[in-house]
Simulated assay, not measured.
Amino acid sequence: MVIHIATLLGSVVTTLAKRLLMLILGFWANAMVCAFSFIAIAAVASASFMLANAAYAAGTSSASNPAPIKIVTTIQQQWQFNLLKEALRRSGQSYQVEQMSTQMNQKRKVEEALAGTVDVFWSMTSKELEETVLPVRIPLFKGLLGNRLLIIRKTDEARFANVKTLADFKQLKAGQNRYWPDASILEANGLPVVTSYQYTNLYPMLEGGRFDYLALGAQEIGDELASHPDPALKIDTHILLQYRSPAYFFVSPKRPELAAAILAGLENMISDGSFDEMFNRELKIDKLYRDAQFEQRVIIRLDTPDLSPLTPIERQELWLDLFSMQGAK
């Protein structure tokens, strides 16, 4: 009897223990499920927050770093193109500059700018040009373009060596591109001028005696003669033809904001001295002065009646000192 009761009690205890164990295990299982559920919810929330932040950051980045503004230019020359790119970089805007490979004369460039297919080009200025498209009135060559050396026939060297005055110089005939503002300046000063609509035609015309000299900017004349080699031609060593003829960037009237950006960038470069540093380095100004021997030449000064009253002549930092030079007597 005692054994039976003990057995019964043992069975009851065992059953109770099993149920208690099941309750404990069930509690922990539920707790673990809840814990894992909480972790999963937290992870999803965290991931959602991160995605939202990433999307916001991407949107913010896109807004603060917009796609570069595309501009089209006809400029191919190294100095002018490099200067344009640096000015745009300094403007605070992001630009993508596309160079047109098509060769255009001055008239065509203006037409394309008016149509909006060309955004910016460079040229020597004139009143008419400044009234037609938008000038950025910072002289790209600091006035150097208006200091002209002459390509002449070698057989005429003595004729040019005898020139002492403007009256002497008027006995010689100039060759010019019809679209260049220089032609009008020379004519306005009473100089005889023969023109061609094609620049490349001027070299054989000079050799053939159609005119006596071709005046080009001191910074370009060496390269130009090398590009049109002719054993009958040379650079004169006696005369400096001088007149105010700043070259500017000109912008399509459809892009006034671009003109403002270029001006802002150039002014930034002028203020910190980097314009002069880049100008002297790229155009090798020290060497140019040594080779050209400006101060030893007879200076023939011309008026520029077509010069805009808005030309920044009073800003001395924009010009070289050549216009105050006395030259040879």
Rank of each mutant, 00 (worst) to 15 (best):
I5Y: 11
A6I: 11
S11H: 07
T15N: 11
A17D: 08
K18A: 14
L20R: 09
L21S: 11
I24A: 13
L25M: 11
W28F: 14
W28M: 10
A31M: 01
A35Y: 07
F36A: 11
I39W: 10
I39A: 14
I41W: 10
V44I: 15
A47D: 14
S48L: 15
F49W: 14
A55W: 10
Y56R: 15
N65W: 05
T73P: 04
I75F: 03
Q77A: 12
W79D: 09
F81P: 04
E86D: 09
Y95I: 04
Q96E: 10
Q99H: 13
M104P: 07
Q106H: 13
V110M: 05
E112H: 12
V118R: 02
F121Q: 00
S126F: 04
E130G: 03
N147P: 05
N147Q: 02
T155V: 14
R159P: 03
R159V: 15
F160Y: 09
A161K: 12
V163F: 08
K164P: 07
L166E: 05
D168M: 06
Q171A: 13
K173L: 11
Q176G: 03
I185A: 01
L186W: 09
V193L: 01
V194R: 00
T195E: 07
Y203Q: 01
G208R: 08
G209H: 02
D212F: 11
Y213C: 07
A218P: 02
Q219L: 12
Q219M: 09
S227E: 15
H228A: 15
D236R: 01
D236S: 09
V251I: 07
P253L: 08
P253T: 07
K254M: 14
L258R: 01
A259L: 04
I262R: 04
I262T: 05
I262L: 10
G265H: 02
D272S: 09
D272Y: 07
M278G: 06
M278L: 13
M278W: 01
F279P: 04
R281N: 10
R281L: 11
L283V: 08
D286R: 02
D286T: 12
K287M: 12
L288P: 05
A292V: 06
R297D: 04
I299S: 01
P305D: 10
L318N: 00
L320H: 05
L320A: 06
D321Y: 09
